[in-house]
């Protein structure tokens, strides 16, 4: 029984991370280091709660997070791909924009500096052994396979990967680098938006300022640990989810100050970075491609 509640909360805590990590993965395969995933999730979370608040339909909220995430990601893409901006710093900057804007809008819409009002959550399903889960768990499972299939088994996936490995080579055989990078960003944006929605209307049922709490960066680390493999990403994100679940259980059971338990996922991520170098990173990820500069 104890194990099943632990697994149940691991799945709940790991799912948003997994979605975000898939987004980071796809953009990395297309050659973009997506440090903006944090803001991507946060914006998706905000829009899903807002639309749910307006319509009373959490499914609409979930759907709304997709275009929201895509718009965010396209803006980031425009600065990085078209504006040739520094990928990491652009991502960080756009995170700030979203953190600032959502907090301002929070007080405008709900007249509160911290929390939104409660909104209905996504339909929850009671599963044997796995406990109560939101239906987005199933959506996520499908998306993992879909992302793998897209990257490894389709022509478009091959092109996206070629752009991330060697954009000059791709360009020289007529693969439109800009187009496929934007495509990767669109997919990443949709996944990141869903990740935020899963967090907000899938589980919490409200919006809190900065509610993503660096989950975007944890997702980024999870992708590194997984060696940029979509199936391994499932394991690494669920592991971080498990740590979070253990931490929450321990809060109620053990006599350890809460602060130290809260550190757990961040501490383990930090330590894991010692053992896993970023070796599998697509070769051109993080670099700006300018045609003709070879």
């Amino acid at each position: 029984m104890e194990l099943s509640t632990l697994i149940s909360s691991m799945l709940r805590l790991g799912t948003p991370l997994l979605l975000a990590a898939l987004g980071v993965l796809v953009s990395a395969k297309g050659g973009i280091v997506n440090m903006g995933m944090e803001g991507n999730m946060l914006f998706g979370a905000f829009m899903s709660v807002y639309v749910t608040y307006l319509t009373g339909q959490p499914m609409l909220g979930l759907l709304a997070s997709i275009p929201a995430g895509i718009i965010y990601s396209l803006i980031l893409g425009a600065f990085i791909i078209k504006g040739r901006g520094h990928q990491v710093v652009c991502g960080l900057g756009l995170n700030f924009v979203v953190i600032g804007c959502t907090t301002v809008l929070l007080s405008v819409v709900w007249n509160s500096s911290g929390y939104s009002t409660d909104v209905p959550r996504l339909p929850q399903v009671k599963l044997p052994f796995l406990g109560q889960q939101s239906i987005s768990l199933f959506i996520t499972a499908v998306l993992v396979v879909a992302v793998w299939f897209f990257l490894e088994k389709t022509n478009t996936g091959l092109r996206v990967r070629s752009v991330g490995e060697n954009p000059a080579a791709a360009d020289s055989v007529g693969v439109d680098v800009v187009k496929y990078q934007f495509l990767a960003m669109v997919i990443a944006g949709a996944l990141g938006g869903l990740a935020g929605a899963e967090l907000a209307v899938g589980q919490m049922g409200y919006f809190i300022k900065q509610m993503t709490a660096s989950k975007g960066f944890l997702a980024y680390s999870a992708v590194i640990f997984a060696g940029y493999n979509p199936y391994a990403v499932v394991l690494t994100t669920m592991f971080i989810g498990l740590l979070d679940a253990v931490q929450m259980r321990a809060q109620t059971m053990l006599n350890i100050p809460g602060q130290f338990l809260l550190m757990l996922p961040y501490l383990v991520t930090l330590l894991a970075l010692i053992f896993v170098g970023d070796k599998k990173k697509p070769k051109a990820a993080g670099k700006t491609y300018v045609r003709g500069s070879f």
């Binding site: 022509n155 091959l158 092109r159 990967r161 070629s162 490995e165 060697n166 000059a168 080579a169 791709a170 020289s172 055989v173 007529g174 693969v175 070769k283 070879f294």
Partner: peptide, 19 residues
Amino acid sequence: HFMLVDSFSVAENIVLGEE
């Protein structure tokens, strides 16, 4: 300077863009 994707196979490199 050759324009090949190192992590792809010979065939994938030849076909890329014309898959």
